[in-house]
Amino acid sequence: MNQWLNQHIQPAKMVLGRMRQNFLGTVLMCCVMGVTLSLPAILFTIIDNLGHVAGSVESKPQLSLFLKLDASSKAKANIAEQLKKHPDIAKYEFVSKESAWEQLQQNADTADISASLSKNPLPDAYFVTPKDIKPESVQRLQQEMQQWSGVELAQVDANWIKRLDTLLKLGKKAIFVLVVLLGFALVAIIGNTIRLQIMTQLEEIEVSKLIGATNQFIRRPFLYAGTLYGLGGGLAAWFIVLAVVELFNTSVTEIADLYASQFRITMPNATITLVMLLSAIGLGWLGSFVAVNRSLAKIEKL
């Protein structure tokens, strides 16, 4: 156990010592990684916050439940009971045909139309806000409500939801593509840095192998270096996102105040932050693993 621990402590100390010796280079490397990682992170933050904006400004999508003109009071009461008990409904509002007719008559744009009508053609209606705004969930709810007794038409503003959903999906796809491309770039950057470090320590590696060092022993310090670069890059990315959010918020606050809104851009939550850090560490480790394995294979061929 002690020996195993020593075999990890020694390379970790060595790598930290080398990083301290080459402090500026290490900081620059972490900055390069940080800037690269911050691009998808900033994009994600924007998309995530756009989702919140859409949710708060446009309000959640509604289902309009128009009742049959001859719907009985019992049928109306049944529908109200079903809406009350339904687990997928956040809230609902009843608008009677009389109330709707009154609104129609008061509306200047539709006053002419209402004046030409001899009687109220409008039905009673319920306006339902679903809990889950995913298009498929809303669609399912609409289909279910259409079957209810007394309901003439269950209508949903599907275009609006689909548009928003498509835009968010597009944004997420863009993030995914960016993450994959920049991930490759980071693996290449770290791999190249580690390869250069291996070249400067080639003699040491060869001697170590001659006197009984295993490949794990040779790999270990480089893997630690890659992991630490990844961690440093991940932290740098987080600080860059924080700086960008703070910078944007100075302008966003002014605009939001004009609309009497409390909206502010928020940082990614703890889970996303953790995923970002772990991804950075993983990419650092992967870059160094690839580089050191390629170099070991070359050394063994010599």
Binding site: Q3, W4, N6, Q7, I9, Q10, V207, S208, I211, G212, A213, T214, F217
Partner: peptide, 11 residues
């Protein structure tokens, strides 16, 4: 120290 480090002997 190198052969000892390879064998995990430190301190």
């Amino acid at each position: 120290a190198l052969p000892l480090h390879i064998n995990g002997i430190l301190g």
